[in-house]
Structure formats: C-alpha cells, structure tokens
C-alpha cells in the first residue's frame, strides 16, 4: 500500500515538545545512523525500529508511534543510550511515549484484573512491580 503523508512537522508540535520535555532529550541531535537499532536486543519485537521512532518524532508522526508495539517491546535496557554517538537516550523517549498513553484514564496497558492469571509460582516480585510501574498509572 502506498500512502503519502504530507510533511507538516508542526502538526503535532505540542505533543513532540511534551515528549521531549518528559524525556529531557533532544531529538534533533539524532542523525539516523541506526546504531540504536543495530544493537537493540529486543529489535525482533519492534514493528517500528528505534531509529525510526526518532525519525517519526522528528516528522511529528506521533499517532503511528502511539499505535506501535515498539514502545512496548522496549525493555529499558539502556543499550541504545549507552552507545548513541549523539548522546540521545532513546529509552527515555520510549518511556515518554508509553506515559503519553497510560497517563490517560482508562488507557492502562495491563488489565489489573487479569494480572493474577499471568503469574507463575516463580515470578519475582520485581517483575510484577515493574509491570505495574511501566504499564499502569
């Protein structure tokens, strides 16, 4: 399918600025080298690749990002951040994108009712607490 987006970097300016504020990161520093994607250990779960996440943000295409699985496949392992030649911490941008969603009422990623069913007898508390912190507000 061919789709042609009209480039209007201003279209989501407010949201982009907010994401930059929450993450305290500067997306114009990125020059699309792809080092983040190349080193991402969870890249097989990314429908939009990490460097593409930044590109879409630069273009103001927030909606695509909020609908993606990529932001939920990020494990916040900081590999991308520690190697980025432009010192952009994508893990913080991923977090800001997730927060943009879960901070809206009724938008939790995880259905709290279903949590007990997900658990096996060995799962550490750490995983459950992390899950609540990352997926629920």
């Amino acid at each position: 399918m061919v789709s042609r987006e009209k480039i209007t970097p201003d279209m989501a300016k407010k949201e982009v600025v907010r994401i930059c504020e929450i993450s305290d990161e500067n997306i114009v520093d990125c020059m699309q080298c792809g080092k983040c994607t190349a080193g991402c250990p969870a890249v097989h779960g990314m429908d939009i690749l990490p460097h593409q996440v930044i590109r879409l943000l630069q273009l103001g295409q927030i909606d695509q990002l909020l609908q993606s699985e990529a932001i939920w496949s990020c494990a916040a392992c900081f590999t991308c951040a520690s190697r980025c030649p432009r010192a952009v911490d994508i893990s913080k941008i991923m977090e800001a994108l997730r927060l943009t969603l879960v901070r809206v009422k009724g938008n939790n990623r995880l259905d709290i009712e279903k949590v007990p069913k997900l658990l096996d007898k060995n799962i550490p508390q750490q995983a459950i607490v992390s899950g609540f912190r990352k997926y629920v507000k």
């Binding site: 699309q32 080298c33 792809g34 080092k35 983040c36 994607t37 190349a38 080193g39 991402c40 890249v43 690749l49 460097h51 593409q52 590999t79 190697r83 030649p85």
Partner: peptide, 26 residues
C-alpha cells in the same frame, strides 16, 4: 547506510549485528 550495534565473536567468525537504516532491515 547504517551502523553496527555490536560484534559477537562466534566460533571462528565475527557476527556483525548491523542495520540498513534505509530499508529498515536488521
């Protein structure tokens, strides 16, 4: 066009994990 994330020495090879940033292929 793209960078290498990491090189994993595996057997007698060097497994180079990179990306083609243009096509989006890892």
């Amino acid at each position: 066009k793209g960078m290498v994330g990491k090189i994993f020495p595996t057997g007698d090879k060097l497994k180079v994990n990179g990306v083609d940033a243009l096509s989006g292929e890892v």
